[in-house]
């Protein structure tokens, strides 16, 4: 199947869609592994929102591309280099602090991005963005509360959160290395960068977490399908059935 995208808008949207899919899958991994049952349900809920969002975005892409493939084909039949998610969201669930830190950093980004997309001239996209904003707002509330609890809870939780933040910050630089596609589809990219920086700095300061200086890393851009090694393992699990039984319908 040829998954090369021709339309500029869909080239941009697939970044958002893949980011939602991969983060959804990471959160689904937490099923039956949360600190208590209520939190298990909460993480599943956020995961469900993300898969629902991904599916809607893939549908828009399929329409824009006038494609002979489906959203499921996009999810289950593309390889590592054809995925365009933020490296941030493919990072593993080392512990609950990683789950929360990754989620919070994503939610702050997603809030800013979908706010701008809600004013898109593509009315289907604008409508979706408005729906997504409510989900993101809730997820943001949830992850921010946990940032406070972990940051200010105990010495152990603070140091675990610090570790998670130290690691995950390495994957932030690329998020704000906007390219022409981003600048075309979003109203004001620099505003997203500064909104993210301001809120993250404030939150980290409020919950006693240090933001360390990170040397620029030459890890190449997610926009070109570059990843950490984690992605292959995630995809091989996720895509197992459709790949193993290519003729089967599910």
């Amino acid at each position: 199947m040829n998954f090369e995208l021709k339309n500029n808008e869909s080239k941009f949207l697939i970044r958002l869609a893949d980011t939602a899919t991969i983060l959804g899958q990471r959160l689904a991994e937490m099923c039956s592994k949360a600190p208590f049952l209520e939190e298990d349900i909460a993480l599943s809920n956020i995961s469900l929102d993300l898969f629902g969002r991904a599916e809607e975005l893939y549908k828009i892409i399929c329409t824009l591309e006038n494609a002979d493939y489906t959203p499921d084909d996009l999810v289950f039949r593309r390889n590592e280099r054809q995925y365009f998610n933020l490296k941030l969201v493919e990072q593993p669930n080392e512990d609950f602090a990683w789950v929360i830190a990754r989620q919070y950093m994503h939610d702050v980004y997603a809030t800013a991005v979908y706010t701008q997309l809600s004013e898109s001239s593509n009315s289907e996209l604008a409508g979706l963005a408005n729906k997504v904003l409510k989900e993101v707002k809730y997820s943001h509330l949830h992850s921010k509360d946990w940032m406070d609890r972990l940051g200010l809870g105990t010495e152990e939780s603070n140091s675990r959160l610090q570790l998670a933040i130290d690691h995950l910050m390495k994957y932030v630089e690329e998020i704000f290395a906007w390219d022409d596609l981003d600048r075309k589809q979003l109203i004001d990219c620099d505003k997203i960068t500064s909104a993210w920086e301001n809120e993250i700095n404030q939150t980290l300061a409020d919950c006693n977490i240090e933001r360390k200086t990170i040397q620029p890393l030459s890890m190449r851009d997610y926009r070109d399908g570059f990843h950490s090694e984690h992605i292959g393992h995630l995809l091989s699990i996720m895509q197992y059935l459709p790949r193993a039984y290519p003729d089967a319908k599910w």
Binding site: L48, F51, I237, M238, W250
Partner: peptide, 10 residues
């Protein structure tokens, strides 16, 4: 994690 479609997974 191995559900074979977006629908099945949700």
């Amino acid at each position: 994690l191995r559900a074979p479609s977006l629908r099945a997974k949700q």
